[in-house]
Design a protein around this nucleic acid. Sequence first.
DNA 1: GAGCGCTAGGAAAACGTTTTCCCAAGCCAA
DNA 2: TTGGCTTGGGAAAACGTTTTCCTAGCGCTC
Lengths: 330, 330
Amino acid sequence: MSDDRRTPTIHDVARAAGVSIGTVSKALNGTGSLSQATRDRVMTTIRALNFRPNLLAKSLHTGLSGSVGLISNDSFGRFTMPIMEGLERVLSEDGIGVFMANATDDPDRERAHLDQLLAKQIDGLVVTSRRADRRPSIEIQGLPIPVIYVFSQGGEDALTFLPDDEGGARLATEHLIAQGRRRIAHITGPDNFEAVRLREIGWRAALSAAGLQPQALLHGPWSEAWGREAMARLLQDPPDAIFCGNDQIARGVADTLREAGLRCPEDVALVGFDNWDVMVSACRPALTSVDMNLTALGAEAGRQLSAMIKGARITGTHRLPCTLIHREST
Amino acid sequence: MSDDRRTPTIHDVARAAGVSIGTVSKALNGTGSLSQATRDRVMTTIRALNFRPNLLAKSLHTGLSGSVGLISNDSFGRFTMPIMEGLERVLSEDGIGVFMANATDDPDRERAHLDQLLAKQIDGLVVTSRRADRRPSIEIQGLPIPVIYVFSQGGEDALTFLPDDEGGARLATEHLIAQGRRRIAHITGPDNFEAVRLREIGWRAALSAAGLQPQALLHGPWSEAWGREAMARLLQDPPDAIFCGNDQIARGVADTLREAGLRCPEDVALVGFDNWDVMVSACRPALTSVDMNLTALGAEAGRQLSAMIKGARITGTHRLPCTLIHREST
DNA sequence: GAGCGCTAGGAAAACGTTTTCCCAAGCCAA
DNA sequence: TTGGCTTGGGAAAACGTTTTCCTAGCGCTC
């Protein structure tokens, strides 16, 4: 009769424990005034029936669903993953679930996803994107829920979390200077990336703080092939150190160095950016690189989103520090 | 009065349109019997108020939440991403949201996640894991909802989707044979991976079907360093082709070949596994590789899960075909 | 002109919770 | 003994939908 295949509801518990559903609810949430005996009896029954309260019903009148959406424009790419990981870890501690949605820069898909998420009554939204450039951020304005931009540019009065590209570049360059290098080149990605421009600024800042002149600056695609080609161009008058815009470029540089008979780090020291495990460890020699701490970035975004859901009002663009990971290439 | 900041409910629409909430519901869902005039009037009001029905309330008595969970043990690693992408694309077409949960092989975290997901009334569950070996699959047995294992081993009467590792290996080996190669070695990963064992079987099967003897078989870690080392061991009597257990190993092999003065593909042809873009394109020469079609795998899992939610009962282990991507290394 | 069958749309129950309000019983003091 | 206060717990409304059932009115047919 009561042990059929239906998952038990609060009514089943109430009947089995001989109390009203209100009493079960109070026992469950530790609210109201109940005698310890009643509380215990109800809790025992709850465990016996393996009762699990239906969160949807609860949401219905708390107005909070306990879930948020994550819209990625990156097809869950390499950068989105660690962010997701940090975000999910933090939010799950607060019992908040994360819906993932992949929009891939298609406004229609984005709109459809947003509709579905809002219908599901998400309490907040996280927007991530590839880093190319400024994001138009369609109709995410004026949403009735808090929105956080991570690894992507939000609007003015939005809350945005980004890695401190400039600081990371400064870190890398200062490290090279501290190792006695004086002629430091920068081989990097396409300059329509804001990150590329910021890293260049950081490189220049560290150099000029040390009274050094910038050596070569080369822009190209984000690939190993470009790293190889760029280094080849520098071979006639090689610098004594190179700071690269990402790890793939750095690895290409390392390959050309080795094949040209130059030793790394003895002749030319090398620093990458991203600290992408598979690149830095396969590189010969193992690559010193700047870590953007994306997992921490995601975690911080999760904390702030959680706070905003609880009522906090936070805005502004926050840049979180990068870390230099020292390996054999310097 | 009615235009305050509260998001509009079906009651607001009913009042504005001068009908009852039941009528609004019928207009919204195209059910019941209503005159076209009433239907139109209600729909107009709905758009005017920008009303969006609360799916939670709906779920409450359809018993379906329109969301599923994805438990990954891979920290959203390289293999999980394309699966997620395919899964999410298919399910979102059915209006089903995907909660992501990262368990990282920690049973406590897995249990906590499962509790939260069940409390949120998910309609189904997808379990993904790193491919190491057989998954104990804690207490996912006997859940009241359909469960699908993707890229991980489910139990007997579960539904499991895996790539056809053996077929992929056969594809690669047959390709090498078709190019006239006769002495085909296999350098691969640790043999406690089921995938490693299956790929070896496929390699042997293709060889023996062509009347060829297996050349060297070497097991090691999944790294470029291992690829370099393994190839070095083969240098005294090099094979004329090598099928590698993944792209990283293949890339290491390619590096050693080049540095030893052997030409690829002229002297030694090379095939990888995974078709990982960043590896196959950075490899010199660009690497022929076996693609596991993980996005398609995820999509198929999504379709089947959707069907199971609608009542279908499907079990068994399904292996989806791999594809060979031909590039310069063969 | 009376009865019948349709049709359009309303009323209300149901889904599973939380929470507010209220009442009964018990206790103590006067 | 009576009155008041406290305490434990129940009843019911509320959250926003869907769906079942019912009724009022209309147009037919005989």
